[in-house]
Amino acid sequence: MKPAPFTYHRARDLDGATRLLVELEAREEDPKVLAGGQSLVAMMNFRLARPAHLVDIGRLDCLRGIHTDADGALHLGALTTHHQVERAPAELLGRGHAVLRDAMRWVGHLPIRTRGTVGGSLAHADATAEWCLLATLLDAELVVHGGGGRRRVPAAEFFLGYYTTALGADELLTEVVFPREAPHAALTEFAQRHGDFATVAAAVDLELAADGRTVCGGRVALGGVAALPVRVPEAEAVLARGDTAGDALFAACGQAAAEAVDPPSDDAGSAGYRRRLARTLVVQACEEAFAR
């Protein structure tokens, strides 16, 4: 189908973009930010979304790019594409953040990844989106600009529910910051068709002791089992026991995750099916994370 009519605005700078959003929002003119368009244009073509105004931020090159700051935190500009992350050279995206690069192969397909952006994924907040899961797993912070100035929102406070975030309608996401390295982390998932949004996605970040074999802690996050990506403290408690890495530990971690979640039933899978997927995928993610 064709999208409903709207008024198009091309943002020339960040302040101009936020000023315009504030102004349109104050007049209740229903503006929406347009980044890569890989979710928004599809929704507009379906007429699931009918914004009256689009503010295209695609030319704000200041929002594009990858860099590491003096404290070792990795910054990704909101307009950085999935494909830029997938192809990022080791100088820009080192071993400590390789999990981000490797997760990109799960995001749609190449022609989606060349246009779709990190910020768009986070703002869209699909409960199974890889970026939302990674941000939740690794305690990312989201930097937001709006009429009220600039604020930093921890991922744990950013996602509020199905396609719902802490972003105001007059606010822009400008970057996402991954504060620390995660050299033993992995993301894996299952989708009914290759390239689709996952039915269930699992991500694990292991803390290994100096011997390289003892797991002294870790994080477990799941997508597709609730309205937003969730951490699973019950599974993390298993990783914190101080056991040796291996089948027994990883199976216990997967089991704990499956017992802890209360997934929804829908066309893509029943609650029981998602629970079994969660168990299998957490085990796989543990194995992959440990093998790094």
């Binding site: 244009v41 073509n45 060349t114 246009r115």
Partner: peptide, 9 residues
Amino acid sequence: APARACLTF
């Protein structure tokens, strides 16, 4: 870069 012309204004 390959892109979807239906998802681009």
